[in-house]
């Protein structure tokens, strides 16, 4: 057994600290929901006006086509309205709606998936029989890494994420872009937390490869 495995203790890493909620914002959310449930027509319109644009932006991050994003938001809002009675008021209404939009977007992506899944293997590092890097990883110079902060480079990173095979693109969107935690990601993808970690790990390795090729000008 290698020393890294031998040294690993039982049990996983500590859980992240829970998010702090503002009681007055929660009270406003509960009141809005109560008005919708009481049949106040304008209250639902208010919900759309308050959260609709942000939720559409979430859907657009998952869907490649604008009309798909709009359909996702429509489906999600209808299903939110139907299930509004189950909103407990323990979390922000936006958070609750966000999860519904994410679920609707994932359903849409599953329905859209037609072409055969592209393999990620070509983007993963390879090792010699002795376990060392076959291709020496390249270090990016400081100007290149400073570019990460610039908006045009952010656009490039968005473009590189879009190149990942679908299951890997989705896990990066959920964990690093939408900031769902591992348990939430496992729930929306209906896979185990370990599977989320493994998939994210491979996605990040692939993203590193794409970024290295982009920043060092070594794209094939």
């Amino acid at each position: 057994m290698n020393p890294l495995r031998a040294a690993a203790p039982a049990g996983g890493p500590a859980q992240p600290a829970s998010k702090i909620l503002d009681p007055s914002e929660l009270a406003r959310d509960r009141e809005l929901v109560a008005r919708i449930l009481a049949g106040e027509e304008r209250a639902f319109e208010e919900l759309l006006a308050t959260y609709g644009a942000r939720l559409l932006a979430v859907a657009a991050r998952f869907c490649r086509e604008e009309h798909d994003a709009q359909d996702v938001v429509q489906d999600a809002m209808l299903s939110a309205f139907k299930g509004l009675g189950s909103y407990t008021g323990d979390a922000r209404l936006y958070t609750w709606l966000h999860r519904i939009v994410v679920n609707a977007a994932l359903m849409r992506l599953r329905a859209r998936r037609r072409r055969p899944e592209q393999s990620i293997e070509e983007l993963l590092p390879t090792f010699t029989a002795a376990g060392h890097h076959r291709e020496p990883p390249r270090r990016w110079d400081e100007p290149a890494s400073a570019k990460l902060e610039r908006s045009e480079t952010r656009k490039q990173i968005r473009h590189l994420i879009e190149q990942l095979p679908e299951p890997f693109r989705v896990v990066v969107l959920l964990r690093d872009i939408e900031e769902l935690d591992t348990a939430e990601t496992a729930q929306v993808l209906d896979i185990t937390e370990q599977a989320v970690k493994t998939r994210l790990h491979r996605a990040r390795q692939a993203l590193r490869t794409l970024l290295e090729r982009h920043l060092t000008g070594s794209e094939p």
Partner: peptide, 26 residues
Amino acid sequence: DYLDGYRKAIDGARALGKAERAAPPA
């Protein structure tokens, strides 16, 4: 070097997420 690039890939994705979430939506 591998670790350095791996961190930059994660930081890049997270910075993108932060910027996209903070951007005023259309």
